[in-house]
C-alpha cells in the first residue's frame, strides 16, 4: 500500500471512524473538518512513526506538515528521503 493510501486509511478508520458524507479531499483541512484535534495529532504522529519508521521532531509538529492528506504525504516522503521532482524549466 502506498503512503497516501495508508495515511487515508488511518485517518478514516482510526481517527474518524465514521463515514463522511462526501469523500475526503486530499487537500482538505483535517482541523477544519474536526478530524484532527489536539490529541488526534498525537495519535497521528504515533501512527506515522510506527508505520513509516520515521522520527517526528517537535519542531516539525506543524499544521503545514500535518493538516491534510497531501501535507502528510509530502512530509513523510521528505522524511523518507524521496526526491521532490524539480519543475522543468
Amino acid at each position: 500500500m502506498d503512503i497516501k493510501a495508508r495515511v487515508r486509511t488511518f485517518i478514516l478508520e482510526d481517527l474518524l471512524m465514521v463515514a463522511l458524507p462526501t469523500d475526503l479531499a486530499d487537500d482538505a483541512s483535517l482541523r477544519k473538518l474536526s478530524i484532527l484535534d489536539s490529541t488526534g495529532v498525537l495519535e497521528l504522529v504515533a501512527f506515522l512513526e510506527q508505520a513509516f519508521g520515521i522520527q517526528v521532531k517537535d519542531g516539525e509538529l506543524l499544521p503545514g506538515n500535518l493538516d491534510s492528506v497531501d501535507a502528510i504525504v509530502s512530509y513523510v516522503r521528505e522524511k523518507l528521503g524521496f526526491q521532490v521532482a524539480e519543475p522543468q524549466a
Binding site: 484535534d37 489536539s38 490529541t39 495529532v41 509538529l61
Partner: peptide
Amino acid sequence: EYSPTATPFARDF
C-alpha cells in the same frame, strides 16, 4: 498525560 495544551494544534482548539 496527554495535555491538550501541549500540542501544536492547541492554539487552534
